[in-house]
Structure formats: C-alpha cells, structure tokens
C-alpha cells in the first residue's frame, strides 16, 4: 500500500486504527525523503537523526516505494526514551529489503553493549541469508528458522508477551522462547539499522518503515500487518458522507422547500 508525505493517516485517521493501538514510535521512510531527519509520525515525536548517511544518496526508491538505504556504519539514532524500556509486553517490527548480512546485524535495537548487552534487539543471527531473532539481556534468544536476507521485501518483528519471546517473519511466527524476564533497555538510545553503537553491525539494506508498540501483537495482527504492506498502516481512512432517509418520510410528499424545516429560501 502506498502512502506519501502529503496524505497519510495515523491512529484513528488510519484505515487500520486497531493496529495503531499502543504505537510508541513509527518511522516511515516510505512516505518520502525528509533530509537528515527521520520523523516519528506517531504521537511521541521521537525524531531520528540520520548518522553517517547522506540526504542526497541514501533516500532511494525501491520496488516503487521510497526507502532509506543503509550501507556500512549507517544508522538512525532515535534517542533514549523510557517508553521503550519495557517491563511488560511489547512488539517491534521493520519492513525492509536486506541482502547478505554480517553476524548480529540489527534492523532495530535498544541495547547497551557496554552493560552486558542489556536491552532488546531484532537481529540477523548469522552471515549470508540469515534468519532473524529476538534477543535480550544476554540470555533470551528466540531464533527464527527462515532466511530473510535474500533481497526480497520482508516484514520482520519481535514480540514479548510477558512469558514468551517471539520472532515473526512476513506475518508468521518463525521462532519463540519462553522467558518471563523483561528486557532492561534503560539509558541507551534506540537505533534503526544498527546494533546499538556497534558500527560494524549495520543491517544493510533498504528500509520502508519501522515501529515500536507497547503491547504484543496477536497472530492475526501480525498477519494483517504483513497483508497490508510496508506503508499499509499509514493508509488514510476514507471519509464518507452517509445520507439516510428518515423512516416513514416520503421525499416526494414534500413538494415545496418551505414544507421542510430549514428548507431554504426558494
């Protein structure tokens, strides 16, 4: 689904308002280029800064959609917000197109490397056409089984229900691990395209959209998210005028405007 900067909808103005429940950050390169900022179109104003990137060459069109192209060391730093330091269920997803990766390259992460890898990460687990995984606190890893880095557009995401960590690929559950331990991501920045501040762990590819939610998406919602496509959540709802005829009223009985309340002057 295509949306652009001139016309899109979020939350109750979206054609898919239910998916906007709990969104605490939504970044949408698919809406079109915005220089060296990547705006958060959610209500939270978590603007990201393009780092080691070029406004002229890193905004690209891929498969008909506007995208941000990440190469080595590129990242978008969205800063540190406590709304992403989850002690309860959460989800994060990225729509992108990735080729062969290096180990532990991360499309989205809020993780402290210097503090024992505390935090949460959506990452690619190995070199080449890697599967992805949800990972946090050096202990929990829910690994997927499907290679996703094959230069096709993918929707990859992670969820934590409070009891189970999950990794989702194209609307399907691809791996899970039981854990009741919440990710402790306090005090570190959220990065799109890179594993924290580790510059050689950029998940290189084209990014269409990314989001973080403070709830675990259901299986149906993951499927819906995939079905509506990279910019689908931004599709604006149609505004409809609805006209109904009052029951028991026969329009042709009113032969003059003056017979109608507020019927005009003629």
């Amino acid at each position: 689904m295509r949306s652009d900067w001139g016309y899109y909808g979020t939350y109750d103005e979206s054609a898919h308002p239910d998916l906007w429940d709990g969104v605490v950050g939504y970044w949408a390169p698919c809406l079109g280029p915005t220089g060296l900022r990547l705006y958060d179109v959610s209500r939270y104003g978590n603007w990201g800064t393009l780092t080691n990137m070029d406004a002229a060459s890193d905004w690209v069109v891929q498969d008909g959609l506007s995208a941000l192209n990440f190469t080595a060391s590129d990242n978008v730093n969205c800063g540190d917000r406590t709304i992403w330091d989850f002690t309860g269920p959460f989800s994060a997803f990225v729509w992108g197109r990735w080729g062969s990766q290096s180990t532990d390259a991360a499309p989205i992460a809020k993780v402290s490397v210097s503090n024992g890898y505390t935090g949460w990460v959506l990452l690619f687990t190995s070199t080449g056409n890697s599967p992805c995984a949800a990972f946090w606190n050096s202990a929990t890893r829910a690994s997927g089984s499907t290679g996703v880095c094959d230069n096709t557009i993918r929707c990859v995401g992670i969820s934590w229900t409070g009891a189970v960590a999950q990794v989702w690929v194209n609307g399907k559950l691809d791996g899970s691990a039981n854990t009741t331990t919440s990710p402790n991501a306090a005090g570190v920045d959220l990065f799109i395209g890179q594993y924290g501040f580790i510059s050689n762990r950029t998940a290189q590819g084209q990014y269409f959209s990314a989001a973080v939610m403070n709830r675990a998406l259901s299986a149906n919602e993951w499927r819906q998210l995939y079905e509506i496509g990279p910019g689908g959540m931004l599709q604006r709802r149609r505004r409809r005028r609805v006209y109904t005829e009052q029951a028991g009223f026969r329009a042709h009985y009113a032969t003059q405007r003056a017979q109608l309340i507020g019927g005009g002057l003629r």
């Binding site: 900067w5 079109g32 915005t34 220089g35 705006y39 209500r43 104003g45 800063g79």
Partner: peptide, 17 residues
C-alpha cells in the same frame, strides 16, 4: 534543545526537498 519545542508541533505538514 534538540528541537524539543518543535517536537510538540508533531511531524511537519510539508518537507520541501
């Protein structure tokens, strides 16, 4: 600081490239 005031205005309506 870090565009804190401007962020209260939400995302821009037009971003001229």
């Amino acid at each position: 600081t870090s565009d804190a005031n401007l962020r209260q205005a939400g995302p821009p309506v037009v971003s001229l490239v």
